[in-house]
């Protein structure tokens, strides 16, 4: 009998290693469930979950919604683009109004870092951070590390390179925390302008040459260039970025051993990742998506389990 140490999932930073292991063990069981002919269990049938998305999302939103439905929860969806937020309502008011309709859990995506932490201080429902600005994206990191564990047997001792736009990536930060908690070595690689100034302080290796990074690592987690968050030019052109940091088959063929390729999606094909790599046998990109549902089911289930204590 075990439970998570927190009633919210705000970031990987707040989780303990045993929390992550409990999530993985529970996700193993849910992965078996979602591969059955009947993919549904009734665990959350008396729970209502609001998916509150202030930012666009396809994968994360679908994945959360499927996870919720496979656990038999009632689901309401909210996206800011067609809501009263446009009329000037605050985040807290919006969410309090949703909660007044008796919602038990909130899955929140917001463009401001710390938005879920702010909500968690003010409302009673369990909050799950589905990405807050450039800060954290905990379920993505959990599903990434879960996928590494599935592919390579273990995360501890593995060398993982995170390549691309580290500066704007919440996936990078959450992955760094998760990988370090599970005992992996982490390297970040990208052009200097896309690396945060103090990235060395979180205990990761920094590499500017993508060839050296690929040679060093067991797993390369390739990130998308986030054009929507870049108000200024961080590199001369996309073509130049691809030339220096794009990963293609020739680069991988030049290595002495195969490495595992990951990408949190959406892929800019031909920019950070070539199709001959994205669709190759060493890519686990679609496994990541499948595992995403199982991992999110585990998170929802475990958080719902401790709700009764309050």
């Amino acid at each position: 009998m075990q439970q998570l140490s927190s009633k919210h999932l705000l970031g990987i930073k707040d989780l303990t290693t045993s929390d992550i292991e409990l999530i993985f063990e529970t996700a193993d069981n849910f992965k078996e469930v979602i591969n059955r002919p009947i993919k549904k269990v009734p665990s959350l049938r008396d729970i209502t979950i609001a998916n509150v998305f202030f930012e666009n999302s396809t994968r994360t939103k679908l994945s959360f919604e499927l996870a919720e439905k496979r656990l038999s929860a009632d689901v309401v969806n909210f996206s800011s683009s067609n809501s009263s937020v446009k009329k000037g309502e605050t985040l807290l008011d919006t969410v309090n109004n949703i909660l007044a309709m008796k919602v038990d859990m909130v899955v929140l995506r917001h463009s401001s870092p710390g938005a879920p932490h702010f909500l968690a201080r003010h409302i009673k429902a369990n909050i799950i951070n589905a990405g807050d600005g450039t800060h954290e994206h905990p379920t993505q990191a959990l599903l990434d590390t879960f996928s590494i564990r599935e592919k390579l047997g273990d995360v501890a001792g593995k060398k993982v390179a995170i390549i691309g736009d580290i500066l704007h990536s919440r996936v990078a930060l959450s992955n760094i925390f998760a990988l370090q908690k599970l005992g992996a070595e982490v390297m970040v690689c990208g052009p200097n302008t896309l690396l945060p100034k103090f990235i060395g302080n979180v205990g990761v290796k920094v590499e500017l040459d993508v060839k050296k990074a690929l040679k060093w690592c067991d797993v390369a987690n390739v990130l998308r260039i986030q054009m929507e968050r870049q108000q200024i030019k961080y590199f001369p052109s996309l073509r130049e970025y691809t030339l220096y940091y794009g990963i293609n088959k020739q680069l991988l063929d030049a290595l002495d051993r195969p490495i595992t390729i990951m990408h949190p999606g959406p892929i800019n094909r031909g920019v950070e990742l070539n199709s001959d790599v994205a669709d190759s046998e060493h890519s686990i990109i679609l496994n990541q998506v499948e595992n995403g549902v199982a991992v999110r089911m585990a998170v929802l289930y475990l958080l719902a389990g401790i709700a009764s204590d309050n």
């Binding site: 009998m1 075990q2 409990l22 063990e25 069981n29 469930v33 729970i47 656990l71 289930y301 389990g305």
Partner: peptide, 23 residues
């Protein structure tokens, strides 16, 4: 067979039961 996800005491007991493998 593991029945953890089908139990009727979920959220009603102090600590949730840990799930086991179904095979």
């Amino acid at each position: 067979l593991d029945a953890t996800f089908h139990r009727d005491d979920f959220r009603r007991r102090v600590t949730p039961l840990k799930a086991n493998t179904t095979n």
